[in-house]
Each structure stands twice: as C-alpha cells, then as structure tokens.
Design a protein around this nucleic acid. Sequence first.
DNA 1: TCTGGGGTCCTAGGACCC
DNA 2: TCTGGGGTCCTAGGACCC
Length: 424
Amino acid sequence: MGSCNQCDSFPVIALADCNNFYVSCERVFCPSLKNRPVIVLSNNDGCAVARSNEAKALGIPMGAPYHQIKKCCERNGVVVFSSNYELYGDMSRRVTSVLSRFVPELEIYSIDESFLNLSGMEFPLLLSQRIRKTVGRWTGIPISIGIGETKTLAKLANRLAKKKKAGCFEVRAGQEDILSKVPIGDIWGIGRRLSIRLQRVGLDNALRFVNAPSSLIRSIGGVTLERTRCELAGISCLEMEQVPQPRKNTCSSRSFGRMVEDLNELEEAVANYAVRATRKIRSEGSLASAIQVFISTNRFREDHEQYANSRTLSFDEPTDDPIRVVKNAKSLLRSIYRKGYVYKKAGVLLIDLISKCTRQTLLFEEYGKPRRSEFVNAVEEVAARYGESGAFLAAQGINKKWSMRREMRTPRYTTHWDDLPSVK
DNA sequence: TCTGGGGTCCTAGGACCC
DNA sequence: TCTGGGGTCCTAGGACCC
C-alpha cells in the first residue's frame, strides 16, 4: 500500500460488527418483525443466542435456557426462532463482500464481525459511516463500527458505538475519561474469571487496568492478559490476519433431541458426526492425523448417575476417508460405552490436521488406492448434489430418532430454490 | 420434559532423555 | 549422610472468544 510515513505512524483498525446478527437475518425476510421482541435459539432449541433490542429490554439474558424463559416469551409476544445457520452463513458472506469493497485489508473474525485496516485512509470516521450505510442498504443488516489504534481498542469502540445513534465511534489510547467508565469485564479478552480476580485487587475499570504494573498483570493472567493491557495502551500485539490460518482440529458434536441408552443408536449418531467432520476437512483439503470420540450423560440431571469419557487414536497415516473415519469412530465408541447410562451428547474430533499437499509420501498405500478414493469421491459428490439422502453410509442409519430438535426454523431463503420467499 | 456448538491459546506437570 | 539438572515433548485442563 502506498501510504506516507505520517500515516504509517497512526495505525487505524476498525471493527464492523452486525447488530443482533441472527435476529437481523430473520428480519430481512420478515420485515414485520421490526420493533418487535425476537430471539433465536441455539441448536436443539436449547438457549437464546441472539436477541433483538426489544427482547433484551424485556430482561431475557444471553444464553438463557429456553424452557426457563418460555413463559415470559409467551406473555410478552416474543417471536422465537430455531437457528438457521445456512441462512446466517449466506448473509454473512454478503455483508463481508460489501465490506471488502471499501478496504484492501480485511480479516473475517467471526460470522458477524470483521476487522478492517483503515490505516492511511482519510477521515476514517466518515468512511465508516459510509460503509455502515452501504451495508445496511445492500444487505438489510444493521452494523456498528468501532475504530481504534489496535484491535482491542476497536473492539471497545464498537461496544460503545452500539449505544450511539450514529452507530460509529472512535476510541484512542489514553482517553482517560472513556477508559475510566469501562467496566473491567467489558474488555475483550477478560472473561468472568479474570474479571473477578482483577476486581479483587482493585482493578475494576479499563483505566486502572491499563495503569497497573506489568508484574501484577502477568501474575494474574500471564502473557495473554499482558498483551490485552498493551493493546488497550495503544501498542499493537494482535496483527491483522487476512489469510485465515489453517485449522488444527475440527469437531462435530451434538446434544441429542432425546436421551439415548442404546449402543446402536449411539453408533448411528457417532457415524453421522464422523461423516460431517470428515466432510469439513475434505472441503479444506486437509487430512486428519488422529481421531477422538467422546460421550457424556446429561450434566444437568442430578437424579441420574453421570458418566463421561473420551478416547483418542492415531491413524497409521493421515486420512480423509469417511469410511475409515467412521470405522475407527465406532470402535472407539464401543471401547468407552458403558451400559446402563442415559447419554445426552456425543462428538467426534479430527485432530492434528495437515494439508493434503504436504503429507509425506506413504510407504503403504492401502487407503490411498485409486479405486477406493474414486468410490469415496463419487459418494461425496452424490451427497453434495442431492443432499444427505442421496448417498450415505449404512452406519449413519435412517430413522435418526436421536437427532436434534429444531422446530421453529425459517426457510433457507437464499440457499435453496424450494425455500425462495414468494411475493404475494 | 426442556440447559448449544465450535474454536484458539497458554500453562503446569509428568515422562523421558542424556 | 549423600539421592543431578536441564532440556524437550506431550497432555490435560483452564481461560477466553463468538
């Protein structure tokens, strides 16, 4: 980037964050939900993971179990949705593509947040107002933008921007009037535990935290917390990552829609998770070096005896072969399964992922045989084109009585032809 | 009855080696 | 009586994030 020295000395990072993202996605396709309390539930219709401002005003906390707030929702006419990740993922791509038109350097941080490098650009605050307007107009999603010299300051500014009508806000290191009003727990990287320990030594706001001696900070939260302190002081410790780092592990797990005791049903579920996890790494061009399977009972049920276990196995060569992964997953499951318990959750992790391109040449090609991989590729292609029911392994089962509940999901408006919204 | 899923990084402590 | 010490690697667990 051709920028002058003067500009280089003032790094400017912006964080663009979608407001109440999942709720906003639902509102795009159902405008009558505007100004009404709306929440979106987690998988299995478990907890509230997104809330409109009206729902927040009713006192519905983030992560509240649905069965605890159901009555309150009914009383207040709260509109409740199951999560629709296909829709949210697609809307997220749309927002990101609009953002990327404005800046050469963008880091997608999560499904609803991106960091933008505005260093060297003129009038960053005005620019973010333009960005915000454009995203709103083109995608229907309202966003807020925070600006600072580091990512942590941009995060902080974003939190404050949500409270402003303009939706954009800038915070500079050393703005004591602002920092002194920020509770310690509102700082990015300081969660519940650290927040308690910091308050105990009198560091209850951002200003006191920034000015605390480095040795104290390190003794409480190690190098990670010290980095957070530097970032708040305007010293960048977290760089922009435009190219996402390759994932090191991947996991597919679900709570069951109902309790499961039977080994056969567990096997079916684990086979499905194994296939899903394998699909993820295949789409990224990775191979897994090892696999872990875990199962557990319902930790919330005090009247049942608890059991949780996991076991890991290294493949003798890294693989992305779903048949092999399923086979190993099932044998791991059998080795940790104990009869007599009522299971609630299971999962499959694929560990130490490596790139397919850099794998070592194999001594024994048993699983790399061309016929085998041709077969697997064909099955995967059919499944991709016609959906899971087009081609699947027998081990995955048919009835899936254990599968999760999702009773209030909206149509996948933007990714399935059958789900297209119709106008009149 | 009902309580999400998917990640990352850091640290402490044990095993092992010379 | 005296019972090394330093390094590396691995794993489990804790903390955080969305």
